[in-house]
Amino acid sequence: MPTERVLLQAEGFGVDYDSTPILADIALSVHAGEVVALIGASGSGKSALLRALLGLSPATAQTRGLLRFAQADGGLRERRDITPLRGATIGFVPQDPQTALSAHRTVAQHLDEVLATHAPGSTRPMRAEQAAALLTSVGLTGELLPRYPHALSGGQGQRVLVALALAGNPAILLADEPTSALDPRATHELLALLQAQARVQRRGVLIVSHDLSATAHAADRVAVLAGGRLVEIGATAAVLSQPQHPLTAALMAACPPLTPPRPARLAEAPRPAPCARVARACAFAATCGRAQSVCAETPPAWRTIAGREVACHWPLGAA
């Protein structure tokens, strides 16, 4: 995978809202053909990162560091103004079709306007053809074109959102909890669809989710975000089979097993201190079961263990 070209790269990236840091030191890249799952609980800063990647941070936000995006010529370029990239270089798949589509517009109208935006010279019949093709590419039929959002099932709506994200043929797909409104079967199918977009269309797919179990299995790499910082990044198989950061381990232990034996109590993950307060310590120094005095004195440096990178003074180590 790393030999593939990089489509999106964040380096030392951070965001302040009203001069309070809520995201810091983010280093992350997404390559062509891969699916990356960014896992973070509510309050981890994942929404801020998502908005920043789309250039849709609130007016009071300030960003630090670099964001680089793929160019049409294959190069990578730093971008400050992301406006022209929206829908064209980076396609966004929102969370819930019932709230992310405009209730008074049909599927056809939604598709047509995005197609018109990204291909200004096109005619309406050309766009109608493209709209039907887009629906086919996400496993739907043209039958849905005249429907309003409320008349779509959860799975159909989510696929329409993917079709809309694909309308500008973006190099990168950014999905925000794309399966949270879906039942297991539809979840499975949607993840397969996103994965095919990476494998077959060679896009880079970044799925942001609060749920390690729901999306990580479909990803090639997992990045865990907590308290506004990344704490562990690595190949999915490595991270899920042998988590090294105490938080990752706790997130996994928090999910009940399907079959016995079951623990009498499920683990509840330690809470990180807010990003703003962490300058010279580990965000978990106050709540982590493994914390030693050094954790409260020095921020943990990144180290590579068993095929992934982890930011912890006392990683769990190979079992």
Partner: peptide, 21 residues
């Protein structure tokens, strides 16, 4: 609302987002 975040993320012009969505 999320619908507007999504509409802007699709690259629609500010004017279109305002008048149509």
């Amino acid at each position: 609302s999320p619908a507007i975040l999504a509409a802007r993320a699709r690259g629609l012009s500010a004017r279109r987002v305002l008048l149509v969505h």
